Amino acid sequence: MAASMEAACGSGAKHIILVHGACHGGWSWYKVASRLRSGAAELSYHVAAPDLAASGVDARRLSEVPTFRDYTAPLLDVLRSLPEGEKAVLVGHSLGGLSVALAAELFPEKVAAAVFLTAFMPDCVSPPSEVILKNVARSTYTPLDNLMRPQDAEGKLPSSFMFGQQFTEQLLYQLCSPEDLTLGKSLVRIGSLFLEDLQTQPPFTKDHYGLVRKVYVVCKQDKTITEEHQRWMVANNPVDEVMEIDGADHMAMLSTPDQVVKCIIDIANRYN
């Protein structure tokens, strides 16, 4: 992925990198990516939707990905491959927000804007796990049939996580088409929230991640990361701009792809 992106991009190209959430893959962006790419020649965008480690079609097993940084490595490789002086707009969804934050911490000079699409957005005070744990604490839903299990008896690996079918239907994809719900059920893989690792990590720094320009896109009908928690994260870590999408569930890139594309194009034009 990294090498192909470098070869495909000439000087001055605008880069948009779409980062998926837990148990999903780059496939979850198919509607948004295809719409963005259809205007790529005119708008000079290069769009990438990499599979993070042990996700999508990435061949690694979860047991081969012991840390959150290992999980995020494919995104870091794409950023590392950008030609000197070029930047990318990073769009993180759900857990992908923490991957975007890590990328901004490590490569702030390569990030034009960090976009959080109903995503976990950490601050520069608490461990990265805090925004996940607070969402669990304040949520009014039950986890239904979601499963979180130890991977090993010694506790050296992070617990595995998988969305259950009922949770997927009622709280994750509830506004998506039957076709996209079927696609999601077919393609999700066992993943992890990497809480054990994220709880041990120091906060992201003010002089790296903290200096990167940020946009939060609030999805008002999200039942997984509720609007209340999304707005708490914004109040807790103020951003450059807040956008809203009405009628979007947690999988906004599938339930409201045109609105998501409009937000991304507006951001890319203003911040790149």
Rank of each mutant, 00 (worst) to 15 (best):
K134L: 11
A114N: 08
D70W: 11
S129R: 03
L102N: 01
A3S: 12
L254T: 12
W232G: 10
S159K: 12
G85K: 04
D246K: 15
V32E: 05
A3N: 12
E6F: 15
S126L: 08
L79I: 07
K110N: 03
K14F: 07
L79T: 02
R80Q: 06
I132D: 02
G85H: 03
L147G: 01
E109A: 07
G191I: 01
K110W: 05
A235V: 08
V215I: 11
L95K: 06
G184T: 15
F68H: 04
V188Q: 01
I17P: 00
C124K: 03
V215N: 06
T142F: 13
V239C: 09
D266W: 10
V115C: 03
A101V: 07
S139K: 13
G25H: 10
L18W: 00
A48H: 11
N237M: 05
E241G: 00
S186P: 15
L52Q: 00
P158C: 15
L157M: 10
F116K: 06
N236E: 08
N135F: 13
V239M: 05
Q230R: 09
L79C: 05
V32A: 09
F161N: 00
K214P: 01
V215C: 01
A114L: 04
D249P: 02
A22R: 02
D77E: 04
Y71W: 11
V261M: 13
A113K: 05
A114K: 06
S44F: 14
Q170N: 07
C176N: 06
R231Q: 10
P158V: 14
G247C: 12
G92V: 06
P143G: 11
R61V: 10
S34M: 15
T226M: 14
T256V: 13
C176M: 12
V32F: 15
W29P: 00
Q165V: 15
H24F: 05
T72E: 05
G85L: 05
T226C: 10
S255V: 13
V131R: 07
F161L: 02
V115T: 09
G191R: 03
L187I: 11
V19I: 10
K87M: 07
Y45W: 06
E241M: 02
L157H: 09
E105S: 04
P257M: 15
Y141R: 12
E196T: 00
Y271V: 07
Y216H: 03
R149S: 03
S34D: 14
K214Q: 08
C9H: 09
Q174T: 12
T224D: 02
L43N: 10
Y209R: 05
N146L: 07
I265S: 07
W232V: 14
P50C: 09
V234H: 09
A235D: 11
T72D: 05
M253V: 04
Q166G: 05
S159C: 13
G85D: 02
T200D: 09
I16L: 02
K185F: 14
T67I: 07
G96E: 01
S192C: 02
E105D: 03
E179G: 04
G97K: 03
W27V: 04
E105L: 07
Q174N: 04
G12D: 03
D266P: 02
Y141V: 13
L254S: 13
L36E: 04
E64A: 08
M121Q: 08
Q221N: 10
V217P: 00
E244D: 14
M233Q: 01
D180Y: 15
V136M: 01
L52M: 05
D123G: 02
D240M: 06
F194K: 00
R213I: 07
R231M: 14
